[in-house]
Amino acid sequence: MAAYWIAHVNVLDPEQYKGYTDIAPLAFKKYDAVFLARGGASEVLEGEPFARHVVIQFKDMETALACYRSPEYQEAKSKRDGHCVAQISIVEGLAG
């Protein structure tokens, strides 16, 4: 059953955040991630406002979690730590 990585992000330092965007795609490619939404127009209707929203589809929950926990992604994450505020959830999709 598919799973979705949902991220809400406010970038604090775009120059430093580029270190993340330069290498994070390596992890996403390794785990066959499919980007469904990435930083397009949005409107926050409830909750804390974030400027950037990302939805990524994975084959299943295990694959999504493996991607997040992978050395490749953790290296990328270390490049963004302190340069953005992020909320990331991984959600299992519906059957059928």
Rank of each mutant, 00 (worst) to 15 (best):
11 V>A: 05
73 Y>S: 01
36 L>I: 11
47 G>V: 11
60 D>F: 10
41 A>I: 06
67 C>G: 02
34 V>T: 15
61 M>K: 09
86 A>E: 13
62 E>Y: 06
44 V>W: 02
36 L>A: 05
77 K>E: 14
16 Q>W: 02
53 H>N: 11
61 M>F: 12
74 Q>T: 09
52 R>P: 03
86 A>N: 03
51 A>F: 02
13 D>I: 01
10 N>C: 07
54 V>D: 04
93 G>R: 07
65 L>Y: 06
59 K>W: 04
49 P>N: 09
74 Q>G: 04
73 Y>H: 12
55 V>P: 02
64 A>P: 11
78 S>V: 06
34 V>R: 15
22 D>S: 09
25 P>M: 06
49 P>C: 06
83 H>F: 15
27 A>Q: 00
92 E>I: 08
27 A>V: 10
59 K>P: 03
59 K>R: 13
87 Q>L: 14
66 A>P: 06
96 G>R: 10
30 K>G: 00
30 K>L: 08
13 D>G: 01
27 A>N: 00
6 I>P: 03
13 D>V: 00
74 Q>P: 02
21 T>K: 08
59 K>C: 04
73 Y>R: 01
60 D>E: 03
15 E>P: 00
12 L>M: 08
24 A>D: 00
4 Y>S: 04
39 G>N: 12
91 V>G: 01
14 P>L: 04
87 Q>P: 00
52 R>Y: 13
38 R>F: 12
